[in-house]
Structure formats: C-alpha cells, structure tokens
Design a protein around this nucleic acid. Structure first.
Lengths: 203, 203
DNA sequence: GTCTATATCCAGATAGAC
DNA sequence: GTCTATCTGGATATAGAC
C-alpha cells in the first residue's frame, strides 16, 4: 500500500492566514468608517503593514470588496446549511425567514455589501456572483420544499424579509422592533400562498 | 386704499434659481456616478462653474446632500398631498402603498439618500430631519384614517413597501416585477390588520 | 458672484530595493 | 513578502483679486 503524503504547504497556509486577517480587519474598519469609506491606508495600518504590501494579497481595492462579498455569501450558505429544517411548510418558511433576517441584522455592513450594493465602483466578479446566485437558488429550493413554486411568492417573500432586515438595521440597530414581527407576517403569507398553490393544483 | 407693492427681490430670485440649478445637476450626477461618488469638481463643471463658486451657495458638500435630502422629503410630502384619497380603509392602504413605492422607484438615488442612508459622513440637519419626521407622521396619520392604530401594523407595512421598492430598484430597475405585487400583499395585510383591530376593540 | 491660485490632504496604485 | 519612495490624480475647502 502506497501512502501519498499530502505535504503541508506552509507558505500557502501562511498566505491564506494573512489574507483572512486582512479581510477581518476590513470588515472591522467597514463597521466604523462605513463600507464605502474603507481606505487601504487604514486597513494596512490596522494590521501593521504598509499599504503597498496589501497588493501582494489583493490586486486592487475592489478585489478586497469582492473577497468580502464572496465571504459573506459563503457565510450565508453555511448558515442555511446548518439550519435544522422542519418538515412542515409553514415551519420551513418561518425558519427560512428567521435565519435570513437574523443573518442580515447581525452585521449591517455585510447586509449593505451583499444586498444593498451601494459601493460606488464595485461589481462582483463572475466567481463571487455565482455564489450569490447559489444563495438565491438555495432559498428558492427551500420554498419549493415548502410547496411554494410560484415565482411571485418567492419575490414577495424576499421583499418582505429584506425589508424587515433593512428597517431593523436602519432604525433600531441591535433591537427587535421589526424582527419580532416576522412570524406573524410569515404565517399570514404562508396561509395565503399555500392556499393559492392548492387552488392552482386543482385547476 | 394703500397698496403696498412687494418689491421683487431679483437678487434673491436669481440666487434661488442658481441654487436649484445646482441641486438639479447634483441629482443628475448622482444618477450616473452613484450618490456617494458625487464630486464638486464635476458638479461645478456640469453647470459651467468653477468648483469654488459652489461655496457661494452651499457651505460644504454635506450641505448639498442636506438640501437634496430636504428636497426629496418635500417632494414626497407634496406627492402624498396631491393624492386623491379613497374613503375606505383598504383603498387608503392601497393608494398609500402604491404612491410610496412609485415615488421610490422613480428615482433610485433619491431612495438611497432618503431611506437607505449609506452616504459615508452625511447626517441630515435638524431642519431637514424634521421634514423626514413629518413624512413618517403623515403616513401614520393615513394609516390611522384607515383604522389602523397599531404601531406594529405600521412597522410591518413600512417594511413591506420599502422592501418592495428596494428589490425593484436593485434587481429590475425600471420594471414592475415587484411593483405589481403590491395590491395582493396590501389586501392580505389589510384584511389581517383590520380584523385584528376590530377584535381588539371588542375586548 | 465668479474667478484664479493655492492649501492641504488623501486616495489607489506601481517600481524596485532588500 | 515587506519595505521605501514615489507617481498621479482626486478630493474639499479657503484666500483674495476682479
């Protein structure tokens, strides 16, 4: 039996660790200065580097935004994957809405980057965008699992949950004035859309 | 009979006209470069001025944002005032939601400035903020006229309509994929909240 | 009121030594 | 990999002539 040892690439490990350190610092700075106000000078200073050194890890400032965008979407995918999904339709919708809003209000800058997209010159790369699309597809699949196949129902629910998240973040960060309304609204929508689907199936 | 002629102050008129010309240009630039990317150089160039001349009209760049914020909120007040309000509860809610969303999707930059507030260092002045508060109060009064006095109902509806507007603007600007869902959702909410209020009154 | 000239500062990015 | 030094260009804002 031949054992092929996968040699640890310490260089790659180190590089990855520094890269992630930069991203962590970037998220923190975005929290204090505003996402759009992120500056490479401050970012470098925060981690004890000189600004040009950042370019060894990222091609440009937008590449940093891109990595953050990718990271945020992956976090959301991970979050959705670790959820304990109920089997009844209404339960699925509730859990889906709750996890999504929770994820959003946890970090307002991440919400801004992923879902508001108000950074001046930033457009996600195809690679990062693909992950964002995957997020949407996963959501759509969850709703389908709850019996909702109507695209309009999906659109309506995304507007609802992102609206709740946005209001909570903008008007009462850290609170639950809007978050606590989720269940009531989701139940209302669930009843409505599920009975609509049932009627359509009959026809 | 003594007639007191109110002398036209041509200087003030001219100043006001230039001021409003600057604001118009600012909105246009915001549309192409992004609101946060507005630059005084370009703004001045657009109206055939040199950058320093802008300071004759505004104290700072943020003062321009402030004037835009004020203008936007006044436009919304005006819009709400000229609406032909129905007398039935559901009709009021529909018209209120429709006019609001319509107002938002008309101009994504205005929506961003008024309701997303993602401009780095900008905070509205007390004077401008007061008008924003007035907008909210007017909305609240409309809902009260429709029989909805529950603050939670108000919060829910604001989340819903701003969520619809945001999704429409972000994902399909100029389209109606979300806008066309308003009536269905508002009817659903109207029935729900109105019957809740009725139950409360009984108790 | 508008200009020229300038101050001051900061941005992102690159070249090349070590 | 990280640095120093520097490029280039942008920003907002002010002083003072006309």
């Amino acid at each position: 039996m031949v054992i092929v040892e996968t040699k640890r690439d310490r260089r790659a490990e180190r590089r990855e660790s520094t890269t992630s350190e930069i991203l962590t610092a970037a998220w923190e700075l975005a929290g204090t200065q505003g996402l759009a106000g992120l500056s490479l000078r401050e970012l470098a200073q925060k981690i004890g580097m000189r600004p040009p050194s950042l370019y060894w890890y990222f091609d440009s400032k937008n590449a940093i935004y891109d990595a953050m965008f990718l990271q945020g979407n992956r976090q959301l995918l991970a979050r959705m994957a670790e959820v304990d999904w109920p089997s009844d339709a209404k339960g699925i919708l509730r859990v889906c809405a709750r996890s999504f809003v929770e994820f959003c209000v946890e970090d307002s800058r991440r919400f801004q980057l992923l879902f508001q997209r108000t950074i001046p010159g930033f457009e996600p790369s195809p690679e990062a965008y693909a992950v964002a699309v995957e997020v949407v597809e996963q959501m759509r699949a969850r709703l389908a699992a709850a019996g909702l196949h109507d695209p309009a129902a999906f659109d309506m629910l995304t507007a609802l949950v992102s609206g709740i998240a946005a209001q909570q973040i903008a008007n009462e960060p850290g609170g639950d004035r809007w978050v606590r309304l989720i269940d009531e609204m989701i139940d209302l929508c669930a009843d409505h859309f599920i009975s609509k689907e049932a009627n359509r199936e009959k026809a």
